[in-house]
Every structure is written in structure tokens, then in C-alpha cells.
Design a protein around this nucleic acid. Structure first.
Length: 455
RNA sequence: GCCGCGGUAGCCUAGCCUGGUAGGGCGCCGGCCUGCUAAGCCGGUGGCCGCUGGCCACAGGGGUUCAAAUCCCCUCCGCGGCGCCA
């Protein structure tokens, strides 16, 4: 949510940003807010005057009652004023609701370094890492998508899609999951279960080392938390609701971690607060019909390790870079080639002021695909959730900044590992960093092994 | 789930029975005093507004009243006891 003072004092700043985002229909909201706000303040001034008079009369009545004087004239006057107040209060309440309606639906102000663009085709790749294994047939798109700035190894054979590897390795049962729960669910099985847990523990350890506090949060939260951290559009498209309860299944640990300090005033000396959350994530994936329907790339449920930071405003941009750096280190250790993309205004979403994605090269699909998303939400969530800080107890509390970034989302990391680390025979060679967590170094196709996970 | 007690500023607390518009302490900030430190004294320390002035705020919502922290109703949270249960 934006500060209404920003709209009052610099409506042009807000409008220009809406233009950058391509939110044309919301431009007139700004003027609408200004007008409603002016009326709201005028009414508030009148109410305050009337209340002052009512309070004066109430005191007078109290005094007269003590001395036994008659109070009928004062009662009549007071009653009249009270009626006037009630009328104005209704108006003020109505105005407030309308202002809040708009205010809660305006996007965050973007950072100046965010590229301007209409949709995801205009996101800007800013750096590349790793040596991609690229099948000849994907070479043209690879060169284009990596701007020719990335190392690669040309493959004569065509790497398999992760969905085919899952079958070959007996790593997931998608058909039966569809029977039991529907499309976009999966039974993860055999070595892939161990791999999933290994990835989680690996990412957690990396961040604990860096001073992040590990957290397993509640997997369901109240509505006010979801309203605080997301835009209203996301409710319909991503969030599952528990029937007859004020509870929502979390689509990411970001949400309960943001709610953790709702309505609190943090001492400045305690900032930044660094958390690394681990949780399952539940997403409806409505509005993505037909996209990524095969395999486990886009699913209703997965595990995620998430970085979450509460920072002072003047330090938040620095932390944004650190969060993406942390995520990069994890993917480097997993030996997954990737590019970093600066998400453009048209693809940014309402919450973030700036967002970097890590897009991993998927050797089987021949595409870069999103595996990590790192956002600086500046004060947008903090204002909605009322999370403030101050350095001295006598100071006026200020809203802090919140940031979040994936450390690892297991389903997508598994896709990246399967596609990039497969051999022509269908063996998946695990990166060294995971060995101590998995206890095995490679995953063999079912026909090549005696049994799962054993000697 | 049931019964009892509670929720007042960053923290601790008074006021509630008997309605008259929130008082004290800690911490913090500024000032005074002081050879220095400590102590002491004075003032400040939630939100909103068109800000020399006001209004609002006592877990949240509603009601009664000229007037509600106070009386009534509902909800939430905490603590204690009982019940049930991995």
C-alpha cells in the first residue's frame, strides 16, 4: 500500500509510475483519491468541531448536575449536536471506505532501475553463470536467450525432458496423483524424496551459516495476513481457502514470515531481521490452464526454503542484492547454469518495487525457466501489516522494508537437476554439494538398479 | 470443549464495584543543576486533521447514555482449572 501523503503531495509521481506499469485505467484513481481525500478531511474537520462542542456540553452537564441546576436546555442542544455528528460520521466512514478501496489496490512504486516494458518478453537479462549443455536443435534459441554471453557445451544427443526422466527413474507417479487429487499433483517417490529433502536441508544450512534464523511457520494464516502481503488479484488465482474458517493455505513461507511481526514496532538496533523459512507451498495455479501441464514444474504443492528480511529503508536495496546473491550461490553449488533477469514494469506484479528472477537453463526443454524470485517490497507490505521500527523509544515509528527471495523451491530445482545433470543413458549425476545430504551420488534408471536407495 | 480470571502507551501498572473524558513508574529524548559521574528537578515521549488549535485512542466490534476504560452483548487472544486426545 502506498502512503496517502505521497498521493496528496506528489500525485504526478504516482501517475508516472502507473504509466510505466501500463496501468492506464488506474490513472484516474489518483484524481479520485485526491478528491475523496479532500472531502474526507473537510468532514473530519467539521466532526472534530462538533465533538469539541459536545464534549464541552457534557462537562457542563456534569457540573450542573452536581449543583442541582436544571440541564434540560443543554440536553436538547447536545442531542442535536450528536445527531449532526452521527450523520457526518456516516459520510466519513463511506469516504474512508472508498479511499481505502483504491489505496489497497494501487501497486507499489517501482525502483528507477526497473526496466520499462509491457510483459515478460521485455524482462532484461543482466548476468549469466555456468556452462550450459545445449543440444544442437536448441542452439539458436540458446544463443539468443543468453545474448551470446554464456559458455556452453554442444550436445549431439537430445537430453530428455524432466517428465520422461521421472518416469525412467520411477521418481514420481503423476497418473495416480491425478486419480487421487487431480491434475498438477504428484507422488514423489524413491530417490527423489531423498533429493527433495536434501535440497531443503542444503539450502537451510547455507542460510543458517549466513546468520538467518531458521523457521517452520504455520501453513495456514488468517485473511489479514494474505491481504497484507499480496494483491487482491492473487486471492482468486493462487490462494486456497479452508472452508468455514478464517484460514488460508500459504502459497509460500513469505506470507507467515511477513505476518510474524505484524502490528509490531521493532527496535532499530535489531534490524535487519533475517529469517529462512521452510514450508510446503500450496497454489491454485488458476489462469495457467495449458501451461506446463506435464511433470512437476508447475504444481499445486511443493516445498520451498525462503529468505525473508525486515530491513531499514536505507538498507533495503543492499539487501535485495544480497538475497539474489545468496540464491545464486545455491544454484552455483548445484551446478545449474542460469541467467539473472531484471523483471520489467509490466511483469512485476503489484507488491514488488523491483524483482530479480533466476532462470535456470533447462537442457531438456531448451529454455530458461524461473526457479528463483527475489523481491524488494519496500514499505508496501509493511504499511498494510503495520510493521514499524524506531531507533529511540521517543521517536515516531517508521515503516520498515520487507524483502523475500526463494532459496530453493524443490520441485523446480529437481527439474533443473534432472534436465541438466542427465547422461545420455538417463543416469542423473548429482552435484557434489548434495552428496552428504543424499547419501548417493547418482540416480539410476529403474532398469539399471536392483532396488531404491540401497547398496 | 466447559468454567474462572485477565487484555490500558515500547515495557510495567492505577483507574472499573459507584459513568464525568486516562494517572503513575521504567526506558528513551531535551533542558536545569553539578569540578566529573551518579542522584535530583522541569518538560517531552500513540494516531489523525486544514496543526498557535482540536479530535480520536483503554484487545476488536456493537449497544445503553448528554457523557463509557468503567454498564450490557458478541468476537478474538492470554493465563489457571476441568474434560478430551496424539
Amino acid at each position: 500500500m502506498l502512503d496517502i501523503k505521497l498521493i496528496r503531495e506528489n500525485p504526478e509521481v504516482v501517475k508516472n509510475d502507473l504509466l510505466k506499469r501500463g496501468e492506464m485505467e488506474k490513472l484516474k484513481w489518483v484524481d479520485e483519491i485526491l478528491e475523496l481525500d479532500a472531502r474526507w478531511r473537510e468532514n473530519l474537520r467539521k466532526i472534530n468541531q462538533l465533538r469539541k462542542e459536545r464534549n464541552r456540553l457534557a462537562v457542563e452537564i456534569g457540573k450542573r448536575k452536581k449543583t442541582g441546576e436544571t440541564i434540560d436546555d443543554l440536553l436538547a442542544k447536545s442531542n442535536e449536536i450528536v445527531r449532526g455528528i452521527e450523520e457526518l460520521e456516516k459520510e466519513v466512514e463511506e469516504l474512508r471506505k472508498r479511499i481505502d478501496y483504491y489505496l489497497w489496490r494501487l501497486p507499489n512504486i517501482t525502483h528507477e532501475s526497473v526496466p520499462i516494458g509491457k510483459d515478460d518478453t521485455e524482462n532484461v537479462p543482466i548476468r549469466f553463470w555456468g556452462k550450459a549443455r545445449v543440444w544442437k536443435g536448441f542452439m539458436d534459441t540458446f544463443i539468443e536467450e543468453s545474448l551470446g554471453k554464456m559458455e556452453y557445451e554442444a550436445l549431439e544427443w537430445r537430453p530428455k525432458l524432466h517428465v520422461d526422466l521421472l518416469e525412467l527413474l520411477k521418481g514420481a507417479d503423476l497418473e495416480r496423483a491425478a486419480k487421487v487429487s487431480g491434475a498438477r499433483f504428484y507422488y514423489l517417490m524413491n530417490e527423489l524424496v531423498i533429493l527433495d529433502l536434501a535440497l531443503v536441508r542444503f539450502a537451510l544450512d547455507r542460510l543458517i551459516e549466513k546468520g538467518f534464523t531458521p523457521v517452520i511457520p504455520p501453513y495456514m494464516v488468517h485473511r489479514f495476513v494474505e491481504e497484507g502481503v499480496t494483491s487482491f488479484d492473487d486471492f482468486a488465482d493462487v490462494i486456497y481457502k479452508v472452508e468455514d474458517e478464517d484460514l488460508y493455505l500459504i502459497p509460500t513461507a513469505e506470507h507467515p514470515l511477513a505476518g510474524l511481526h505484524a502490528n509490531e514496532i521493532i527496535e532499530g538496533k535489531d534490524l535487519p531481521l533475517l529469517y529462512v523459512g521452510f514450508s510446503p507451498c500450496f497454489r491454485k495455479e488458476a489462469g495457467t490452464a495449458g501451461k506446463d501441464t506435464k511433470g512437476i514444474f508447475r504444481v499445486h504443492q511443493f516445498h520451498k526454503v525462503e529468505q525473508f528480511v525486515y530491513a531499514k529503508p536505507e538498507e533495503s536495496w543492499e539487501w535485495h542484492e544480497k538475497l539474489i546473491q545468496n540464491a545464486e550461490e545455491i544454484f552455483q553449488a548445484l551446478e545449474i547454469p542460469y541467467r539473472i533477469v531484471n523483471i520489467c514494469t509490466g511483469d512485476l506484479g503489484y507488491v514488488a518495487a523491483k524483482k530479480y528472477d533466476i532462470e535456470a537453463w533447462m537442457a531438456g526443454q531448451g529454455k530458461f525457466r524461473e526457479v528463483v524470485s527475489a523481491s524488494n517490497c519496500t514499505g508496501w507490505q509493511a504499511r498494510r501489516l503495520n510493521i514499524r521500527y524506531r531507533d529511540k523509544t521517543h521517536e515516531k515509528p517508521k515503516f520498515l522494508h520487507t524483502l523475500n527471495s526463494t532459496a530453493i523451491a524443490t520441485s523446480r530445482a529437481i527439474v533443473a537437476i534432472l534436465e541438466n545433470h542427465q547422461t545420455e543413458e538417463g543416469v542423473v549425476k548429482l552435484p557434489k554439494a548434495l552428496w552428504k545430504y543424499t547419501g548417493f551420488k547418482e540416480i539410476l534408471p529403474a532398469h539399471m538398479k536392483e532396488r531404491c536407495c540401497g547398496e
